[in-house]
């Protein structure tokens, strides 16, 4: 599987996710929610294929619970469905719950794909120049994790020789075992850290401006996508400020429907579809290139 959107410049990826997540949290107009739901689900399924469907099914209970819970806390609304004790359970509150749940699931799905698209090396590329020291620390932590995992296994194995299995005994013994292992790891790691630091220093760390690991270029495609995204963001924000996306759920349901709604939702949909459009275009192009051979 080839995800072309992931191979765009990280700046493009970051701006897309900032837009998708922030707009996703602000706009609760039903058309916006529909646009977000359709695009986030499509993109997630595109990336994960069949395995993604299982995760989506797993999210269904979350959706139902959040929808159903809201009317329990929110008793306003005009249409009474039934009452629990003295507390009314209203249709408006339930619909608001469904909207909130949709928003929540969409944001979670955007984060699911975010975790696939924006990898740690992209983050260091993005923030390496703004926060040089922190991104070194961040990179080092990521590098140390697997190494410490191995060391932990080594320490536990050594302790097995003296009969201190990790799984032995009750909870108390296990916790004690765990703390000893962590303590041992700490001694070793701290001593090692000084060696690493001295080695860094003797190789000239800090003597000049740090350069970053960069394998990303700004291609003309990135520029086009970026321009398109900025046009979308400006239009959506403008329509939002003009009231095109305004909504009220409680006490009665009312949505804006004017020219700003149409334009705003259209651009919102285009913006959110960008990754899918890019991926599918590339797939189609490849298909034709292959069939020509």
């Amino acid at each position: 599987m080839q995800d072309t959107f992931s191979r765009c410049n990280p700046i493009v990826n970051l701006i897309f996710y900032l837009g998708a997540i922030i707009f996703g949290m602000i706009f609760m107009h039903p058309l916006c929610l529909m646009a977000a739901a359709v695009t986030s689900i499509t993109y997630y399924i595109y990336l994960k294929r069949i395995g993604g469907l299982k995760v989506l099914l797993g999210l269904a209970p979350v959706f139902i619970i959040i929808s159903a819970i809201n009317p329990l806390f929110n008793t306003r609304g005009e249409t009474l469905l039934f009452s629990i004790g003295t507390r009314p359970y209203t249709l408006e509150a339930l619909i608001y719950g469904v909207a909130v749940a949709t928003m929540f699931i969409c944001v979670i799905l955007w984060f699911f794909t975010y975790n696939i698209v924006i990898t740690s090396d992209k983050l260091t590329y993005l923030f390496g120049n703004v926060t040089p020291s922190l991104s070194v620390v961040f990179t080092m932590v990521l590098r140390l994790l697997p190494s410490y995992k191995r060391k932990l296994a080594a320490i536990s194995n050594a302790r097995k020789c003296i009969g201190k299995y990790g799984e032995n005994g009750g909870t108390k013994d296990r916790i004690k075992n765990g703390t000893t292992v962590v303590s041992t790891l700490t001694s070793w790691a701290l001593e090692n850290s000084i060696v690493t630091a001295d080695s860094m220093k003797s190789r000239g760390y800090g003597s000049s401006k740090r350069s970053n690991f960069v394998i990303y270029r700004f291609t003309s495609r990135d520029i086009w996508i970026l321009v398109l995204m900025i046009i979308c963001i400006v239009t959506i924000s403008f329509c939002g400020i003009k009231g095109g996306m305004s909504y009220t759920f409680i006490p009665d349901i009312d949505f804006a429907t004017n020219k700003f709604t149409v334009v705003g939702v259209l651009f919102y949909f285009i913006f959110l579809s960008l990754p899918i459009i890019i991926d599918v275009t590339e797939d189609v192009v490849w298909h034709f290139l292959k069939s020509r051979i």
């Binding site: 020291s133 620390v137 296990r174 962590v182 790891l185 790691a189 090692n192 850290s193 000084i194 220093k201």
Partner: peptide, 28 residues
């Protein structure tokens, strides 16, 4: 502050221990 290499590595090491400590207690 333009931290020294030693300071940064120590910080990274402690963060990594904090994160990985969860693994040491995976049986609890």
């Amino acid at each position: 502050r333009k931290p020294e290499a030693r300071e940064m590595v120590t910080l990274a090491v402690i963060c990594a221990i904090a994160v990985i400590s969860r693994v040491a207690f995976s049986m609890v």
